[in-house]
Structures are given as C-alpha cells and as structure tokens.
Write a protein that binds this DNA or RNA. Sequence first.
DNA 1: TGGAAACTGAATTTACAAATTTAGTTTCCG
DNA 2: CGGAAACTAAATTTGTAAATTCAGTTTCCA
Lengths: 188, 188
Amino acid sequence: MLTEIREKILKGTIQVFNKKGLKLTMDDVADELKISKKTIYKEFSGKDEIFETMVDYVFDNIKVREKEILACKDYSTIEKIRLFLSAMPESYRNINFQELYSLKDKYPKVYKKLQKRLETGWEPAFKLLEQGKEEGLIREDADLKIFKIMMEASLERFFEKNVMKGSGRKYNDYLNEVVDILLNGISV
Amino acid sequence: MLTEIREKILKGTIQVFNKKGLKLTMDDVADELKISKKTIYKEFSGKDEIFETMVDYVFDNIKVREKEILACKDYSTIEKIRLFLSAMPESYRNINFQELYSLKDKYPKVYKKLQKRLETGWEPAFKLLEQGKEEGLIREDADLKIFKIMMEASLERFFEKNVMKGSGRKYNDYLNEVVDILLNGISV
DNA sequence: TGGAAACTGAATTTACAAATTTAGTTTCCG
DNA sequence: CGGAAACTAAATTTGTAAATTCAGTTTCCA
C-alpha cells in the first residue's frame, strides 16, 4: 500500500511528466506540489525510484479495474474481453504513454519494468481469449499473438499523433471501434 | 516509361538504400552498379531526383498489380478487397519502408511525394470498401478511416521490428492474418 | 562514350572546452 | 518536522573550430 504523501508525490510527478516529459526535474515536481525537495527525498531515494514507483502506480490502478471485471459473474466471456481490452488503454490516459517509452535510454531499469508489466498485463486477456476459443466464441485458428500486436500498434498510433483531429470522434469512440473491429475480426 | 539505364540505376539505388539507408552516397551507388558517377549524373540531375524517381518507381510497380486485380471480372468485391489490401504491403517488401520515412527531414519534397502516393494508393481500396458496403458485405457503420489507421499501424509495426522472429510464421502468413482479422472485423 | 580518379566547395561530423543545468545534500530557521 | 534557499559535484547542453565526408564537376584516358 501507498502512504498518502507518496501517492501525492507520484500524482504530482505524473502531472509534471505529462507536461514536461522525461525532462522533468526534481525542482519541477517540488514546485508543482509546493513542497520542498527535502520532503521528496525523505520519501524516495531518488529520481529512479520515483519513476519506477510511478510505473507500478499506473499499472496497479489498472489491475484494480481489471479484477472488478474478472470477478463479475454477470458478464459473458465476450463481454469480459471487450471490457478488459477497453480497460487497458483507458487507464493509460492518465499518463503520457508515448513519453513513458522514452525512458528507454536513460532509465533502462524503469523501461524493463514497464515492458514486463505491459507483458503480464496481457496475460489475463489471453486467458479470456483462450476461454473464448473453448466456448466457441472465437475462431479456433485466430492468431492471438498477431491480435495483440495489432491492438498495441493501433493504440500506440493513437497515442502518437492525434489521429482523430478534425473528425468529431472522441477518444473512447476510437477505442471502442478499434476493439470492435479486432474482436469481430477474431470471432467466429 | 523508364529507360533501361534509369531502371538499372534505380534498382541499384534501392539495393544500397536497403543496406545503408538514407545515408547512402552517390559513390555507394556507383560502386554497387560498377559504373562511374558520371553515368549516373548523365541520367539524373542529382540525389534528390533519384530519390524522387525511386518513390515513383516503387509505387508504379504497385499500381500495375492493382490494376490487374481491379480489372479481373472473376473476383467478387470482397476477394478484390482482400487481394488489394495484400498487394499494397507486398510491394513494399522490395524497399526498406521504415527507412523511406526517414527521408522526412532531409528530403521533404520526396517525403511529400511519398505521403501523397500512400494517400492516393488508398483511394481505390476505399472505393472497393464503399462498394462492399453497398453490396451488404461490409458493416454499414464500420469506420473506414479507423480501419485504415489500424491497417497502416499494424503493417508498419511489422516493418519496424521483426515481430515474427521465433514464431515460424513467414511474412505472407502475417500479412494474410492481419488482412483477415481486419476484413472480418468490418464485415457483416 | 564511359570508366578511373582527382578535385572543390559545401555540408556534415568530431572533438572538446566553456557554460548551464540538475540531482542530491546541507544549512538555517520557524 | 518541513520549508526556503544555498551549495556541490556530476551530468548535460552549447558553441565552435578542425577534420572528414560527400555531391557534383572536371580531366585524362581507352
């Protein structure tokens, strides 16, 4: 669990991270939160630890939502999959996800954690999809690995550029359409 | 039409381009073809013109294949769409497509041509897809713009990294599965 | 006519020191 | 305790002059 002050610092860091990206400084975060650096350094050993904890924080929030979906007895497998696939990227909206990737070079440890959590984040989705196959809802020959790549590529493309500019579509519309097309694409 | 010597130079340029990327030099191309720079400069005004002609060359080759598909009376609309969508990226295999994008900064004119040809390259596909809607083969409410974005993102992801490493899948398998999922995804 | 090789000016890269920024610490103070 | 602000060593950025590379031309030669 997270103490109040740690959560406050993490939220502030994410706030600044979304504005200034990877280049945020400890002073930026302290200014944003109107606390002194001393307080930050009392809670965190340094920038590395903050970034690492930030990744955990983002993904732990996703997990909460996902557990809710999985636990609900009222949803069919296909409904669960749809909700699950939507929940993943929806949670990413809180943080500049594209920028998160830029941690690769300077914070390889954080980046590895990010990748690992992205990977394990897919596991329950895969389980559901396999279950869908067993229930005859999903094409037996559908390649889930490719499905995953397409999903990731389509979503990241949206994070990259604002693909929707001009068209009246909102983020969630786009997200739903992507999930629809892909899910439809592998359904029987 | 292209003279023999111009085509030879273009092929050689593509060859070197795939090895050395944007950073190829005129000497590289001359060495590759075992001709002297003089010969190249007799045919092309300079590097810019070669790159521009190279883009045209790649896309004109695609067009030939596409015309064949469109003209064939034996194919249904849905078959045409499938073949059409496969033909586009298949043609890109001859050239390092990812690297082509890197022309953006140093050769903005070439890059604009590339974008324009990519854009117009989609037009007949859109026509077919609209026709598919009219024939009741494709969901009336399917968002073709999003479909296009997903297709592009999925394919570019493959050009980026060799996503298929490890898995026994070959390029064409991947391509077909992507087209299958997407086409299935917007079909009724 | 075209290859080999030399040539030139412009562009690009390299190298490196000076200037700036910043992570993390310390001091003083209420 | 925690804020404000100063401090230091290390990292990053900036400026720039020297070195290198390269596009495009020219010369000589077969």
